[in-house]
Amino acid sequence: MAMSVPAVAAPTERWSGIAARLRWLDARYLQIGFLGSFLLFGALLRDFALRPEQVALTFAAALTTQWLGARLLGLPGHSLLSAAVTSLGLSILVRADSLWVHPLVAVIAIGAKFVIRINGKHLYNPANLGAMAALLLLPGAWVSPGQWGNDMLLALWVAAFGITVSTSARRFDIAWAFLAIYVGLLCLRIEYLGARWAVLENQLSSGALILFTFFMITDPMTTPNHRLMRWLYAAIVAVGAFVWTYVFFQTNGLIWALFLATPLVPLLDRLMPAAKFQWRAASSDYRARNDSRSSSNQTASIPL
C-alpha cells in the first residue's frame, strides 16, 4: 500500500506539469496537432479525395507567402504557425481535380492577410477566404460538406478536443455563442416541422460544423475584439448560415455566412472598441511564459 501512493502521485504530478506546459504553449501547436490528426483520419479512413502532393503544395505555398508577406510589409510577430494552421484547414476543406488549385488557394488565403487589412487587423479568416476562392473563382475546385460521414463517436471526440484547444485560447465564448444559436435554430426547425430528432443527429455529427465552430469562427484575429460584439457576430453568422441552408436551400452555408459577415467586423470593433488580440510572443523560455500568465488576454488561438 505504502508503495502505491508515490507510484500514483508521481504520474499525476508529471501529467499536471505537462498540462501546465501545454496550456502555456502557443495554442497553435495544439491546433496543428489536432488538425493534422483530423486530416490523417480523413485521408486514411474516410477516403478524402485528397492527394499528398496537394497537401505538400498547400504548405509550400502558404509558408512561402507568409514569409514573403511578413518580410515585405515588415510586420512583426507573424509566425509561420498561422500559415501551417491555414494549410491544414485548406487541405481538409478544399478538393480539386488538379495540382495547381491548392497552392493558388493558399497564396490567395495567406496573401489576403497582408493585402486586406483594416485597423491593423487582417479582415478575412484565411481558410474561409481560401475555401470561398475555391468555390467561386477556380475551375475544378470544390468543397465536400458531406465528406465526413455521420459518425457520432468521431464527432464527439473531435468536439472534445476542439473545446480543449479553444478553451486555452480564451476566446471560446464565440464558439459557444455560435453553437448555441445555430443548434437552437436547427432544433426549432425540427420542432416546427415535426421531423425526427435523428435529423438533428445527422446535422450535428458533421465534421464540417465542428471544424467551423472550433477552428474557423473562433479565429481571434478576424473576429470582433469586444466580447459583446463577438456574441453579436456569432449570432449574425449562425442566423446567416441557417437561412442560407434552410431558407435559400444553398450549400456550404457556414462558409458563406462567415464570408459574408466578415466585413461587419471593423464596424463592430468601432461600435465597441476593445484591445486587439495578440498572439503569444514566440519565446522558448518557459519561465518567461509563466511570467505572462497574468495577461490572460494574450493566450490564444485559432486562425484556420
Binding site: 478538393r95 470544390w142 435523428a198 456550404n252
Partner: peptide, 17 residues
C-alpha cells in the same frame, strides 16, 4: 429509414475526373 433520416440533398461540384 434510420440510416437516411433526412431527404437526400445534392450539390454539383466542379470535379471532372
Amino acid at each position: 429509414p434510420d440510416s437516411f433520416p433526412e431527404d437526400l440533398a445534392f450539390l454539383e461540384t466542379k470535379d471532372r475526373q
